[in-house]
Design a protein around this nucleic acid. Structure first.
Lengths: 221, 221
DNA sequence: TCAAAAGTGTTCTCTTTACACCCATGC
DNA sequence: GCATGGGTGTAAAGAGAACACTTTTGA
């Protein structure tokens, strides 16, 4: 038992993880194995340990519950409505994360019955206030596409310009002019040709590109 | 005494309040009356009660410690480094706030020895990790000036365009062309003439303006 | 040889920047 | 009548949007 002179809330982290796959923006969810909301889908997350920083807690929970590690992670917002958890007062620091579609090696953990990707248009009902968290993460993602290089976090190590453009089009839900897109993205000087090319199908091969500074998300414009 | 099966961190809110006064961007600080960091300057803030939402906690602490109420408040970031408080694990949700220079009615509370405004260039050493919090709030303020109408939160109910421009110049630390500034700010259609004018000094009187939608901070461009 | 996606420039429009003089007032 | 800050327009440059044809490949 742990005793305090004043009441303390519990503190958790929750992680909204996006990827782009099958021409859709997808979200990683886990099926809860325990109460409350047993059997419901929810964001991966869990309690912050007393000896770990917040981002470390998010990375640990992400690895434990889904097998995902080493990815882009950014603090999103802290949700603390009094009654957001039926058990006790729980304040959660939400993170949001983007991962390349090819790096998906999912593995459900002990405290999750299952883990899976859901298209943003076909989300199941979510536990707690997780729908609010997802909505905010989605708004942030769309906004950041416009003024940062965050979209590169969705790309595998090598990719074509058409693939990159497709990611933008899927998230922004609008078609873009190919020539303008290429001019714009190359002018940012954040990607470079690898020298290789991808040949697939009965058409001209596409040049492959890589992100110059994969760790950084640059603010642009 | 309050008992939990697992250890719980303490949760606080801290508020970074800016105003513009005497041609300077200023920050509200309180002098701590108790340990730790007794006698040091710090951000206003305190523990979140179990029955209040996070923003409510921020507003309550702000009112209690400084007498400020009814102002713009936005969640900034959550700081949770393991050792940021020497007493126990304390996670703090930082808010940032802007207030008009004329609405300053400061009153130090019981748990603060003093309260005062400090120019951003003459900040005293701060308690805890409050210098980091202030630095982040300042970056956010500067960034938001460019893509939102947040600067209006600094203005009194009626103001002249020159006064508004001065606020921008002080925060961005750069001079602006008067004609371009007026064209730009009026094109936003977020302020309107009150009909009144301010005569002060030996020159042409300035038209007075008001913010059309004082509650809203619009995203622009 | 045909179908399919990759690659590539120019024009037009709109937004942003640069810049200088007259106006109304108090003393 | 003069010093002081308030008020106003235009031109040039730069950024963003619109738009169509040629290239390379596999079958």
């Amino acid at each position: 038992m742990y005793e305090y002179q004043y009441p303390h809330p519990a503190v958790t982290v929750d992680i909204v993880i996006f990827t782009v796959r099958d021409r859709q923006l997808k979200l990683l969810l886990i099926k809860r194995a325990g109460e409350p909301f047993k059997g419901k889908w929810a964001l991966p997350g869990g309690f912050v340990q007393m000896d770990e920083d917040l981002e470390a807690a998010a990375r640990r929970e992400l690895a434990e519950e889904t097998g995902v590690s080493g990815v882009f992670l950014e603090q999103l917002y802290t949700f603390g409505a009094v009654d957001r958890d039926p058990r006790e007062r729980v304040i959660t620091i939400a993170y949001f994360s983007l991962i390349p579609s090819d790096e998906v090696v999912l593995q459900a953990a002990t405290d999750a019955e299952a883990v899976g990707w859901f298209g943003m248009d076909e989300l199941p009902p979510l536990a707690f206030d997780h729908a609010d968290i997802v909505a905010m993460a989605h708004r942030r993602l769309v906004a950041k596409l416009d003024y940062s290089t965050i979209a590169f976090q969705f790309m595998p190590r090598e990719f074509t310009l058409s693939e990159l453009q497709e990611v933008y089009e899927i998230i922004l839900r609008e078609e873009m002019d190919r020539r303008n897109f290429r001019k714009w993205i190359l002018a940012l000087e954040q990607i470079e040709e690898t020298g290789g090319e991808r040949r697939e199908g009965a058409h001209r091969p596409a040049k492959l590109y890589r992100v110059k500074y994969p760790e950084r998300v640059e603010i642009i414009k």
